[in-house]
Amino acid sequence: MFLWGASAVFQGVYALLQRLNIPLIVQPQLFGFLCLVSWGQCQYYGTGRSRWAATAITLSVIILFGLLELFLVIFLRPPHDRGERAATTTTKALGIVGSVLISVALFPQYWQIFKHKEVIGISLLFISIDMLGGIFNDLSLAFRAEFDVIAAVTYSLVVVSPCST
């Protein structure tokens, strides 16, 4: 959950700087927030932290990640808009880092499937809705003037990853 929340920072910066469609800009923000709230619940229920400590840690991380994303957008937007190569390369790298973090965060689930030889705790309805979201995100990219390969890879991972389970 924490890695997914962290990936949203990079995906959010990428979506904002690439000026993707509004839903594709909002999606990483909501995804990251919900992942971090879920991670906060893990802090309370899983590690036994007090309610106050789990809430304080979670809110601190959400604020820190929000400020990091804001800083990156403010810092990178002007040179990116001018077409400077370093800023464009950095933006692409952030998009790739976000995709890698999303993928790496799936490994524990795959390890559990391998270890137990069965799928535990995955809702088929949730997986189906998630996959449909990835398909519609890819479709929205297909109708842009310029197809965004990095964003498409990220959304396609959502579609392909559950299929391998």
Rank of each mutant, 00 (worst) to 15 (best):
I74F: 07
V73M: 02
I96A: 10
D130V: 11
C35N: 11
P79Q: 12
F126C: 13
T154N: 11
L132P: 06
S161W: 06
L132M: 06
L72F: 12
I150E: 11
S123I: 00
S60C: 04
I120F: 01
R19C: 03
P108G: 05
N21W: 02
P28I: 02
E69A: 14
A6S: 15
I127Y: 06
I74A: 13
I127S: 14
Q109G: 06
T91F: 06
A151K: 12
I57S: 03
F2A: 09
E118C: 03
G133C: 12
F75N: 13
Y45P: 00
G46R: 02
R82F: 13
F126L: 14
R77G: 03
S123G: 05
V97I: 15
S60G: 14
F114M: 10
R82H: 13
G121C: 09
V73K: 00
R19S: 14
Y155C: 04
D81K: 06
P108L: 04
T88A: 11
F107R: 10
G121I: 10
R19T: 06
L72C: 08
A6K: 02
R82V: 10
I127W: 11
V153C: 09
G32L: 13
A142S: 11
A54C: 05
L72Y: 09
D148N: 15
E118N: 05
